[in-house]
Design a protein around this nucleic acid. Structure first.
Length: 357
RNA sequence: UGGGAUGUAGCCAAGCGGUAAGGCACCAGACUUUGACUCUGGCAUUCGCAGGUUCGAACCCUGCCAUCCCAG
């Protein structure tokens, strides 16, 4: 009896091909598309997003073409509270969140798995570029980088637990993006030519600041902009327009570029400085989750990623207790930003990760 | 209103008689499944204003205006 898999289908190329491949590999497959928000809740949501209404239609057409059953689950409420809500909360405290990670953590790999199990499925599959392997010696599931290093998404999957990993298939983990597109074309999937998604899915026009103020009702008044010594240089447009390391939008001219160095929500002050002011020798990471090991018990060498699409850097991890880890970089890192994820690697294997405090 | 200095794009700034460098900011595009960073391209028919000299002026001359400094 073949394994029953629920393929999460966003309506994009990747998940379409993932579902098709599973079917060809002999799995018993059904498709599932998640409704995460109403289009009328956000501004015009035309092309380049995931999970929009047209994308549900595309997913349905692909499922039909593949001849598999297709479900649409309404996860608007949990998405609103666990993803959008957290996103807004993070901005309130001056952090820079990564909503994709929360969506994976609380929606796709939590509620969707629950739903799949409820329907008698053995596992779920997504179009993420990552690989899951079983370490025979320890019995643990390992999360490993994708074959296509440029598309690797392990950074947004660091919080997966052993029980989740035991029920996850990533059919695209061994493929290159170009191969995925070829396969989509070869199979005549309508999603073959859809552009890669980008931007935050619930903020299709990319104007997340407007979303936070207009839709979420956050208040972010203008305030003073100072240099690192505290000298007032001008006025900022509201703290949520900025993130650490940001250069654009400061609207202030010096001989050299200026970057956001710090956000102080209490005094509503934006501190700006030069490139060299952005480097940190260490950081504390909280809410950590370990995958390759049950827990971190002693100082450990690892490579660390402090933001998406950034090169890894070598560091020493020291457990602090309370799900926290102190990370000391071999070389100071640029723009370490609270709220962003820090992911630890041992070669191609994800050791674990957490949120930068 | 005695003396000195300076006025070139939003900011800084080169140019010193031959037809407006550069940096920052800004804008556009690329890259990017977060916000960023980065990269590429764009961005003063015009040099405080008005006259004059010259084949030709941001550069020389005259006047005016503005700002800053020193002195009163």
């Amino acid at each position: 009896m073949s394994q029953k898999v629920m393929a999460a289908m966003s309506g994009g190329v990747d998940s379409s091909v993932a579902a098709a491949l599973l079917l060809e590999q002999g799995y018993s497959v059904c498709g599932a598309t998640l409704k995460l928000f109403s289009n009328e809740d956000i501004s015009e949501a035309p092309s380049r997003t995931c999970c929009a209404l047209t994308d549900v239609e595309d997913a349905r057409r692909v499922a039909y073409k593949l001849g598999i059953e297709h479900f649409v689950f309404n996860f608007k409420e949990p998405f609103k509270s666990d993803v959008i809500g957290r996103f807004a909360e993070a901005y309130k405290t001056g952090q820079t969140p990564n909503p994709c990670i929360d969506c994976n953590r609380y929606i796709k790999f939590d509620r969707l798995i629950d739903r799949a199990v409820l329907l008698g499925m053995d596992a779920i599959a997504t179009g993420h570029y990552a690989r899951v392997e079983r370490d025979e010696s320890t019995g643990r599931y390992l999360l490993k980088k994708a074959a296509d290093a440029t598309k690797d998404q392990t950074y947004v999957l660091y919080m997966l637990t052993q029980s989740q990993l035991g029920r996850i298939l990533f059919p695209l983990g061994g493929l290159l993006k170009s191969e995925v597109r070829e396969k989509a074309l070869a199979r005549g999937l309508v999603t073959a030519d859809k552009p890669d998604s980008q931007d935050i899915c619930f903020v299709p026009d990319g104007d997340y600041a407007a979303f936070l103020t207009d839709v979420m009702g956050l208040v972010s008044p203008p305030g003073r902009m100072t240099d690192t010594a505290g000298n007032v240089l001008g006025t900022h447009r509201g703290l949520l327009h900025y993130t650490i390391g940001q250069r654009r939008g400061l609207n202030i001219g010096f001989g050299s570029p200026r970057y956001v160095v710090r956000k102080d929500v209490f005094s509503n002050t934006l501190v700006i400085g030069e490139e060299h002011d952005l480097y940190s020798a260490d950081m504390t990471v909280g809410d950590v989750n370990f995958i390759a090991v049950p827990a971190l018990n002693e100082p450990t060498r690892a490579t660390v990623k402090t933001r998406y699409s950034q090169k890894e850097t070598v560091a020493t991890l020291t457990p602090l207790g309370d799900d926290r880890v102190c990370v000391v970089f071999d070389a100071p890192q640029r723009a370490v930003t609270p709220g962003q994820a820090a992911v630890f690697y041992d070669g191609d294997t994800v050791l674990g990760g957490g949120t930068i405090l």
